[in-house]
Write a protein that binds this DNA or RNA. Sequence first.
DNA 1: GTTGTTGCAAAAGGTTTGCATGTAT
DNA 2: ATACATGCAAACCTTTTGCAACAAC
Lengths: 146, 146
Amino acid sequence: MKFAKLKNQLDLCIDQKNLRHSEQRYIILKALWEESDKHLSAEEIYDRVKQDEDIGIATVYRALKLFKSCNICKELRFNQNVSRYEIKYGTEHHDHLICVNCGKYIEVVDSKIEALQEQIAENHDFLLQNHKMELYGLCKKCQQEM
Amino acid sequence: MKFAKLKNQLDLCIDQKNLRHSEQRYIILKALWEESDKHLSAEEIYDRVKQDEDIGIATVYRALKLFKSCNICKELRFNQNVSRYEIKYGTEHHDHLICVNCGKYIEVVDSKIEALQEQIAENHDFLLQNHKMELYGLCKKCQQEM
DNA sequence: GTTGTTGCAAAAGGTTTGCATGTAT
DNA sequence: ATACATGCAAACCTTTTGCAACAAC
């Protein structure tokens, strides 16, 4: 997804709520977008953006809260300590392989699993509407570092 | 599950680790067990146990950490703020079929799915630690009522 | 000019830890 | 007697909030 499209989404939302278009929000959104293959935490976003600009951690949290309310990003909790954030791209993507250490994630699509899920629901007379599957573990890099 | 069985599980684990059998641990375990249809937080457990006995919140946290390491309970995070704990009965139960209307849930264990999950992790050089699969839909009863 | 936004520092809220005391073995 | 376990309070860590200065409209 192009950043311009994401920015546009944010601008729309800001207009709708009658808020102001601030440079900081764009910077924070861009950081999230640039590292969208990871799930950055607020702290990690802060570390990225404070280098170039003078942005406080409070602003990062406030921007993330705004993005959530705009449905631009989503808050996740893999381990007990830190919230991580991901950009919500258009459609839902249900299946993830997630590194519990660095937050890296890989989307997984496996038709055999999808079929089995359907089967399981059917066996219990459930009408399946949606699903979520998350596999937690250590990615290769984090395994080596430990 | 009878409390005696749970207590026994704890005793075994305590022996294995060469720790001491303390009354506080049993009291905390019992509180968790008595409210096992809820997911209590550390604070809620503390509120329950401090009435009868003089137990500190630190002891509750320490006991919960022990229980986790004994595989007797599991830490969950539904909302962003508080950890909640549930007793792990016997086998692992990661997979749920959840009715989006009435909240009913069924535990699902499917070895074919488990095997596929392992396979997927392996394909991506992940060391799998845990997983969560939730299938959302309408249960039979809610389908009929609609 | 008005009102939302920011950075800072202080506070909040949940969890952990240091320490002297207590207790199971 | 020797660790381990405890309660208390302080520390810790992430997140939120109050406030005066600032910036967008």
